[in-house]
Design a protein around this nucleic acid. Structure first.
Lengths: 212, 212
DNA sequence: AATTAATACGACCGGTCGGTCTTATTTTGG
DNA sequence: CCAAAATAAGACCGACCGGTCGTATTAATT
């Protein structure tokens, strides 16, 4: 790294390593991730990885952080370009399903896979995952609250409840898409939110049928 | 095994092994399941396991089957004691959440964990999981259809859509319960279905608030 | 009671894992 | 142009993995 503000060459390679690690961990698990295989795929030596991260766990934690950044870039930021309210909520849900449907990560969803992998393993990795999930939940609830504040959803709405249901539809989408017909699965995930918002919204014309 | 119909002693030990395997695999993953650790926990030798199953994969497949049987005994059969219709649907959902809340398996849900673990790994294990999940989905849809046939749900209801949402609430429950407050999570999972059924049912008095 | 059949055991095999260390190569600064 | 410092490489370590095999113990049969 350079001492001034420029992005050092090492930071680029560092991010390339972590992108590969995210993709690989999504397929074989964050625990099943082998440093030897990761090094092979990157065409570097295994000891080179230890020069950047002092242990496998350190690299795993950095991998979680990189996955958070990818989620931000690929799903949250596009959704924030939609106008506030139910349309932004719908845009977020659609962006997430599109992300799954596009098979950006061949292994499905890094967070879904990893959270189920570590839900019975206390430790730094699960703590980091829990932290990320809490932020995601808070973000979802904030978007629902905005729609309420705009009068697009009822004032007495149970905000956390709707946020729970939205996330549930997303989680189920990525799981079922591997076991049942993907198109049917994604349609259920989309319709789940659409029907719910239409039932709640005093102005259903805001909501579009197709992907945003 | 005996040649006649009696249950041999070996079948009992076989089931005991598989029960332990289900519990262990739910914690560390069906792939991460170590035959050495399993043998240690059972206080038998590792080679003894290979006398009953010719390979690790054979034992993993038997473990999936045993988990299916546990799900049948613990969740489906109790729910079938409730009267047909929306009350049976609700009973099934409650039994599932109770099963999670009781921490019967310390690792959470065998199927949720394992399906996310194998969703990017084609092979016999994923095939077996997919088969089990298809039967589960068909069963859920059958129960919804029964409620429609009884007139307790609208005749034009999208049966598969409601089944999708019910399962989504269950999946999310077991995942979030490890990362956020469990009681809040279970309440969201219960209310998700309850609100949905109340909005759909022409006879909401059938539905009870508390656990069945 | 003696022989046979079945069973359970633990040492052992090749391979892969995370991690270390010594060596060779490249880059940098004067 | 050379010395010094940083970097990458690959051999190597102990631990654990799935799986095998010869042996000792138990159970069943006559």
């Amino acid at each position: 790294m350079t001492s001034d503000g420029r992005v050092a060459r090492g930071d680029r390679t560092r991010r390339a390593v972590l992108d590969t690690a995210v993709a690989l961990a999504t397929e074989v698990g964050l625990d099943g991730l082998s440093l030897g295989q990761l090094a092979d795929r990157l065409e570097v030596s295994k000891s080179g990885l230890f020069a950047h991260w002092r242990s496998k766990e350190a690299l795993q934690l950095a991998t979680v952080d990189r996955a958070v950044a990818q989620w931000q870039e690929r799903i949250i930021e596009p959704a924030l370009r939609a106008p506030r309210g139910v349309r932004r909520l719908q845009a977020l849900h659609e962006a997430r399903i599109d992300f799954y449907a596009a098979r950006v990560l061949p292994g499905g969803c890094f967070f879904a896979n990893t959270e189920f992998e570590y839900n019975a393993r206390p430790g730094p990795i699960r703590d980091r995952l829990a932290e990320a999930f809490q932020r995601w939940t808070a973000f979802l609830e904030r978007l629902v609250q905005e729609a309420v504040d705009l009068g697009e959803l009822p004032a007495d709405l149970d905000v956390a409840q709707l946020a729970y249901e939205i996330d549930a539809f997303g989680i189920s989408a990525v799981m079922r898409s591997r076991l049942l017909d993907p198109d049917t699965t994604y349609r259920h995930a989309r319709l789940g939110l659409l029907n719910r918002l239409r039932a709640l919204s005093p102005n259903p014309t805001l909501l579009t049928e197709g992907p945003s």
